[in-house]
């Protein structure tokens, strides 16, 4: 399992209007790339195009993996809403994709992943009997069960309270190591904490974003993290005020 880098170049359109002007970006192989930007700029549309899902937007350009193989079948996704099946317990939720394919189910493996995300003993719990943080960790276990090399995360931690968020971020960083992870976020702190590479999406294009030298996941309370966060915050404010960098 070698995770490929993903190159995207072109311009993003929706209907007749331009969403993001010409850009060329690379999501690092086997590392975390953050994609920042205001709501409505087209981050999620771009994501859906990468995953090969129906999207409201059209890319005038191309998306390619560094090894040249198709991306779609290697993608697993996790969104802000945990998207768990309310009628199924944790184990069945983790194995749902395998069940949809008709693959042989591996409940022992699913239970091991559940304990990896710190939820041993929750095998038979249903989503309604878990907290938001626990549900998101089940969603993470489901992602791991799929064992895909490319992982797209669409604001997966944004609905969690601060301390739960930091813990879940650390967990995800540890368990997803070695995969090509792309993280959509509008939270500068999250991008600064987790990313190896970060990009800022604006109407004028997608711009690189400097990060602290320390390796992620960076401690949220470290001075270097906080000062980078402040600089990024300032830059984002400038972008939202002027419409470009």
């Amino acid at each position: 399992m070698t995770a490929p880098a993903i190159h995207i170049e072109g311009a993003l359109h929706r209907a007749q209007s331009l969403l993001i002007d010409r850009f060329a970006i690379t999501f690092a192989a086997g590392g975390w790339s953050a994609l920042l930007g205001a709501s409505g700029v087209g981050k999620t549309s771009l994501f859906r195009l990468i995953a090969g899902l129906p999207s409201a937007a059209l890319l005038d350009g191309q998306i390619a993996a560094s090894d040249g193989a198709p991306i779609g079948p290697r993608v697993a996704m996790m969104a802000q809403d945990d998207q768990l099946l309310p009628w199924a317990d944790a184990l069945d939720n983790i194995m749902i994709s395998a069940r949809l394919r008709g693959d042989l189910l591996q409940p022992d493996h699913a239970a091991a992943l559940l304990s990896d995300v710190g939820l041993a003993g929750f095998e038979r719990r249903k989503p309604a009997q878990m907290s938001a943080g626990q549900r998101q960790r089940v969603a993470l276990a489901r992602l791991l069960y799929e064992d895909r090399t490319i992982v797209l995360l669409d604001e997966p931690f944004s609905a969690l309270d601060v301390m739960t968020r930091v813990a879940t971020q650390d967990l995800a960083a540890r368990l997803l190591a070695g995969r090509t992870v792309v993280l959509i976020t509008h939270d500068p702190a999250e991008a600064i904490r987790l990313a190896d590479v970060a990009w800022i999406a604006t109407r004028a294009g997608i711009l690189p974003c400097p990060l602290p030298a320390a390796r992620p996941p960076r401690p949220p309370e470290a001075v270097s993290t906080l000062s980078s966060q402040a600089a990024l915050f300032q830059r984002l404010r400038l972008i939202s005020e002027t419409g470009a960098a």
Binding site: A51, L53, G72, P73, V75, A76, M77, A79, D81, Q83, L85, I96, S97, A98, R99, L100, R101, G102, E146
Partner: peptide
């Protein structure tokens, strides 16, 4: 979200 999940998993319509 579940439609996406189904499509990404590569399952067939009957199982979905």
């Amino acid at each position: 979200g579940l439609v996406d999940l189904s499509q990404l998993s590569g399952g067939n319509p009957c199982r979905e």
